Computed example of a mutant assay.
Amino acid sequence: MTDFIDSPYVKNLAKTTENLYRHGWDERNGGNVSLRLTKDEVEAYAGTDKVLRQITIKFDASELAGKYYLVTGTGRYFKNMIEYPERDMGLVRISEAGNSVDLMWGFNDGGEPTSEFPAHLMSHIERLKKNPNQRVIMHCHPTNLVAMSFTLPLESKVFSRTLWQMHPESIVVFPEGVGVIPYMCPGTNEIGEKTANKMQDYRVVLWPHHGVFAAGDSLDETYGLVETVEKSALIYTTIQAQGGKILQSITDKDLHDLCKRFDLTPNPEFLSAAETATV
């Protein structure tokens, strides 16, 4: 039986974190990722049948009792994860009581899950209600999107419409838009609760002046979601650097045509049939 360290889950998470670092979205020990695995997926690998130790978490995750998560560690540098996966990530199982996790693999130097793990679990709970195939929560710091949070009103509609108008793929990839919460101190249950509440309607939630939380069915899908949002933010930033004067743009009719072509329903609060003005 193959050891868990050689599983595609470990390899794909390490590759994803390296890509996040290379993009400049997870400097130093910034950012964190959690990937839900099924019991069958875990038990197919050697070295995952013993509880190595219990780790307390500051959140009641009993709704997720028995579920497994491969999660990045607190204080870990994403640039190192591909070389030291068994040190910098861990496989945990949510306890029945919900206030601790069983470490099944990894964190072999005594490490623990990211300090944002309670926030991850809150968002996992909400997204699983919307999509039973949901697996990933990803937190990172996309540079241009964060920059926009200093110059645009912190409103979901403003951000969503602005990003949609920057590139045709935007409304196709995130037709529900982007959720925006107020600036809050990271690493707290309060910001986790606010984010999870937004996750009821959005797969990407902007933390102003900081970064994003994103959800998806796979590492690739979630990474691609953030990548698309950030590409639109880069185009917006480039326009501003060129003087900000827009001579032509993607119109509401264009956005409706895109949704019709790809059989999508855009957020009706942000793009109704009656809307003709641009942001």
Results as ranks from 00 to 15, higher is better:
152 L>W: 07
126 E>S: 14
255 L>G: 07
124 H>K: 08
126 E>D: 06
68 Y>T: 02
158 V>S: 03
42 V>M: 04
193 E>A: 15
18 E>M: 10
38 T>C: 08
126 E>G: 07
240 Q>Y: 05
205 V>L: 03
6 D>K: 10
257 D>M: 13
178 V>E: 07
32 N>M: 06
4 F>T: 09
147 A>Y: 09
264 L>D: 01
74 T>A: 15
20 L>Q: 01
259 C>W: 05
203 R>W: 00
275 E>Y: 09
67 K>D: 04
112 E>H: 11
51 V>F: 15
120 H>W: 03
48 T>K: 01
270 F>K: 03
275 E>M: 15
114 T>W: 10
249 S>A: 15
263 D>W: 06
179 G>F: 05
140 C>D: 00
78 F>G: 08
55 I>Y: 06
250 I>M: 13
40 D>F: 01
261 R>A: 13
148 M>L: 15
189 N>V: 05
160 S>P: 04
254 D>E: 08
204 V>D: 01
186 P>Q: 05
72 T>G: 13
246 I>C: 09
199 M>S: 13
76 R>H: 06
248 Q>M: 11
196 A>H: 03
127 R>N: 09
65 A>G: 01
27 E>W: 05
168 P>W: 12
186 P>H: 09
35 L>Y: 13
138 M>V: 12
16 T>G: 00
216 G>T: 02
209 H>R: 14
162 T>V: 11
129 K>L: 14
20 L>N: 00
197 N>M: 06
15 K>E: 12
7 S>G: 09
278 T>H: 13
157 K>L: 14
205 V>E: 03
14 A>G: 11
104 M>D: 00
207 W>A: 01
10 V>F: 12
254 D>R: 05
85 P>W: 13
207 W>I: 04
177 G>L: 13
205 V>R: 06
103 L>V: 14
89 M>E: 03
257 D>N: 05
176 E>K: 03
77 Y>I: 09
158 V>C: 00
251 T>V: 11
41 E>S: 05
6 D>P: 10
128 L>A: 10
235 I>M: 13
210 H>Y: 05
192 G>F: 13
236 Y>E: 10
274 A>K: 14
272 S>I: 09
205 V>F: 02
225 L>S: 07
74 T>I: 02
139 H>V: 04
210 H>D: 01
30 G>Y: 07
151 T>P: 00
4 F>A: 01
120 H>K: 09
146 V>P: 08
194 K>A: 14
38 T>A: 11
161 R>A: 01
71 V>G: 05
213 F>A: 04
101 V>K: 07
160 S>L: 07
221 E>L: 04
43 E>Y: 11
155 E>A: 15
204 V>H: 05
160 S>F: 11
244 G>T: 08
86 E>D: 10
131 N>G: 06
259 C>S: 11
53 R>D: 08
214 A>W: 02
